[in-house]
Every structure is written in structure tokens, then in C-alpha cells.
Amino acid sequence: MAEPFLIGDAMTGGYGGADILHDCTIAVEKGQIAVIVGPNGAGKSTAMKAVFGMLKLRLGAVRLEGEDISALTPQARVAKGMGFVPQTSNIFPSMTVEENLEMGAFIRRDDIAATMEQVYTLFPILRDKRGQAAGELSGGQRQQVAVGRALMTQPKVLMLDEPTAGVSPIVMDELFDRIIEIARTGISILMVEQNARQALEIADKGYVLVQGANRYTDTGAALLADPDVRKSFLGG
């Protein structure tokens, strides 16, 4: 079996105290969408942060394209091709939309104009509001800025922590449509999401975590069809 494009393999660890993750494995293939769902406090965001290097693993490893990157800082992982969009504090509110996107390209030394154009094509509203302070935008528009900024690094993997938190159902559907579009360009998407049913509908792979451990792992469609998963985690 070929190794997944990105894998957090048998991860055990936490933030220095008791372990939050227990032998937890999360992986995503190239150009696919993997979704992490589960109840509050299940360790979903912790698993994502562990893959990105924001907490130290006691056991397990993170590998990207077969290379062990477990010892790398988050900044070094960005240079390797990982983009991360945290749930909160993910934009510079006093800067314009365009300045936010430019900040996203901080590691690049080449011409960023083509990537900027790709972001504006993906999120047309950002082109209209590119001179406006990002903090003045709606919640959904701010999320578009945050995702766009991460895309400016030209990531191979885009990691999204609760991208639809606090937005309306219409905006959520639109964001999910854009996420599918991003994956179609060959970028892998690893996403933590509260809206489990909707997230699994677009997921190639789904992980249901409970208390920091894998409870169910399957395709999104299979998890949606699993009566135990539906009853316990999707409200019937």
C-alpha cells in the first residue's frame, strides 16, 4: 500500500499535561478532502494542530509525501507546502483584503500576481472589496480572506479548522463549494468541521474522533450511511 500524501500516524500527545490524542491517525490523499468530525472536546482541532506541528507528539509521526516532518516547526511545514487556517484570529482586521492576501505570500520570492488572480477568481467578492479593511467584512467574507491568504503560499495541503463556524447555511454551502473547487486543482484538504453531515457529504474520507481516538474511519458516503454514526453523531 502506498502511503497517503499526508498522514498524522498513531499520534499521541497533548499540550504538556495529560494526553489529548490517543493513537490517533488522520490522513489525506492528493487532491482529496478529508474531514474530522466528532462531539465537542473530541480532540478534533488538537489532531489538526498536531499534524501542523503546533503541539509536541509523545508518540507517532507526521509524514508529508513520505518524508517524516515530525520535528519541523509550523513555519517550516508551511515552507514544505502546508497551509493552515485557524478557526479564530485568522485575518489582519485593520489591513485591506489585498494586504491580507499579500501577507499570505510572505514566504514567496516570485511574482504573486497569478496566485492573487486565482484567489479573486475563486472568491469574486474579494476582488470587489480588495481595498476595504478585512475587519469590516461579514463573517463569511472574512473566512474567504483567511482561506485566500493560505492559498497565497501555494500549498499542497490546506488545513481548515472549523471553516464554517458562525456563518449562515447559505454561506456554509458556498464555502463548501469553493473547498471542492480547491481540491479539484490538486490541493489536499484536511478539515475539522462542526457541521458533520454537510462536511461528510463532500468528504472523500471521514474520521470520527471520540476522546482523542479514532472511533470510525471510512469514506464520507459510508459514514453518512452507517446507522451507528448517524444515531450517535449526526442526529439520527
Score class of each variant (00 low, 15 high):
Ala2Cys: 07
Gly13Phe: 05
Gly14Phe: 02
Tyr15Ile: 10
Ala18Glu: 08
Asp19Asn: 12
Asp23Phe: 03
Cys24Ile: 10
Thr25Leu: 01
Thr25Lys: 07
Ile36Ser: 04
Asn40His: 05
Val51Asn: 00
Ala61Met: 09
Gly66Tyr: 10
Ala71Gly: 13
Gly81Thr: 10
Gly83Ala: 10
Gly83Met: 07
Thr88Asn: 15
Ser89His: 14
Ser94Trp: 09
Met95Pro: 13
Thr96Gly: 12
Val97Asp: 09
Glu98Met: 08
Glu98Pro: 02
Glu98His: 10
Leu101Gln: 13
Ile107Gly: 06
Ile107Glu: 06
Ile107Trp: 04
Ile107Tyr: 10
Asp110Gln: 12
Asp111Gln: 06
Ala114Lys: 13
Met116Asp: 03
Met116Lys: 15
Glu117Tyr: 06
Val119Arg: 02
Leu126Ser: 01
Arg127Ser: 14
Arg127Leu: 14
Gly131Gln: 15
Ala133Glu: 11
Leu137Glu: 11
Arg142Leu: 10
Gln144Ala: 14
Val145Phe: 07
Gly148Thr: 07
Ala150Tyr: 03
Lys156Val: 10
Val157Ile: 14
Leu158Asp: 07
Leu160Val: 09
Glu162Gln: 08
Pro163Glu: 09
Ala165Ser: 15
Val167Gln: 08
Val167Met: 04
Val171Ser: 03
Glu174His: 14
Phe176Glu: 02
Asp177Gly: 08
Glu181Thr: 15
Ala183Gly: 11
Ile187Trp: 02
Ala196Met: 05
Arg197Thr: 04
Leu200Asn: 02
Glu201Leu: 00
Ile202His: 04
Val208Lys: 02
Thr219Gly: 09
Leu223Met: 07
Pro227Val: 01
Arg230Pro: 04
Ser232Leu: 11
Gly235Ala: 14
